[in-house]
Every structure is written in structure tokens, then in C-alpha cells.
Amino acid sequence: MDALLLTLQLAFFSTLILLLLATPLAWFLAHHQFKGKFLVEALIALPLVLPPTVLGFYLLIALGPEGPGGWLANLWGEQTLAFSFTGLLIGSIIYSLPFVVQPLQNGFILIGKKPLEVAYTLNASFWDGFLNVILPLAKPAYISAATLGFAHTLGEFGVVLMIGGNIPNETQVISIAIFEQVESLQYEQAHLLSGILLTISFVMLAIIYASRKQSKGPLL
């Protein structure tokens, strides 16, 4: 059960940070044209196609004592960010980035610039207009992005295995716990955890599709 709690924590914090990071990124990509935009978009989409082990491998190096992660960890007296919850969080954020950026970007494109321009002419500043017009209009896109980001982090396996190892209470997430239980023939435990994961994932996807029907808004 510790693994379940840890997984939910990881998914929750990853999603939260991702929404904050992806909002300006998606807005920028939706409304600005610049040279090499396709390269940025390809880079963000990379985790969609890259084997998680490849991503995990590079992350392991980056987070390790020799990489920038190690330098960062030195600031609070650690050797490395690999095999820690923080490292796992960074990995999840990169791994789930496209699942959050893309729905938001599509949502912003669909809304267009017009509502914000109308808000400007009604004496609203950019932030005023963004918070009171764009965010409410983008609600379906945010629900979709949050759900996908959360669900995708829940299902993470390869990246976590590479950079997190399998430390109970620190880095042992549910998918790895299941793998270990099957390896050691504890099918009853594996059934329980798998059932829980299946239910959560199904409920989350059901939320997405239900909200899509209600709002007719932009989703995937």
C-alpha cells in the first residue's frame, strides 16, 4: 500500500508542476510563430515515441553525481538526484510533458486570440484577461491535460526503473511493486494492485470523455 500512496503522490505533484510549466509553454507555442518552432515541438513530443529505457538512461546520467542533477543535489548536501523522490519527480515531468502540453496547446489554438482581444478593449490587462477569460474557456483542455498527465504518470515503469531503482517508501511505485510481486509469484498481491491501477485509470479516462461530451470543447 505504501507503493500506492507513493505513486499517487508522485502523480499528483508531477501533474501540478506540469500544469504550471506547460501553461506558458503551450500558450507560446499556440500563438507565436518563430524559426525552429517545429524543433521545439518535436523535442516536447519525444517522450511519446522514445523507449522509456532510453529516456531513463539519459536521465540517470543527467541526475547522477557527474551530471547537472548531482550538482543540484550538492546544494543540499546530497551526492545525486537519482534513486530519490525528487529525481523521480523530474523524470515524470519530462516523461509526461507532451501529454499536458499538447491538449493545452490545442485548447489555446481553438480559443484563439479573439476573446483576449475583446477583453483588452474592455479595459482588461493581459493577466486579467488570461485569468478571467482564457482560463475559464480552457477548462476542458485543462481537465484533459491534468487527467492525461496524472494517468500517464501512474503507468510509468521504464523510466522509474532506470532512475529510481526499487527503494520502498522512496522510489518503489506501484507498477514496479507489481513487477516484483509477479517475479516472486505473489499473484494475490499483484491482483490487488493491478485491480486498483486498472480502476483508477479507467475512472480517469471516463472523466475525460464525459467532460468532452458536456463541453463540446477541445480535448485530445
Binding site: K114, P115, E117, V118, A119, Y120, T121, L122, N123, A124, S125, D128, V133, P136, L137, K139
Partner: peptide, 19 residues
């Protein structure tokens, strides 16, 4: 910036906020 000019524009389609 637009919001500091105190000019209001009415568009071809009413552009009411749908939310």
C-alpha cells in the same frame, strides 16, 4: 497597450464571452 487606450471595439460577430 489596448487596455490603457480607453477605446472599445465592437466586432462583426458579437464576440460575447461564451462562459
Amino acid at each position: 497597450p489596448s487596455h490603457a487606450r480607453h477605446v472599445t471595439m465592437m466586432f462583426q460577430d458579437a464576440q460575447l464571452f461564451p462562459h
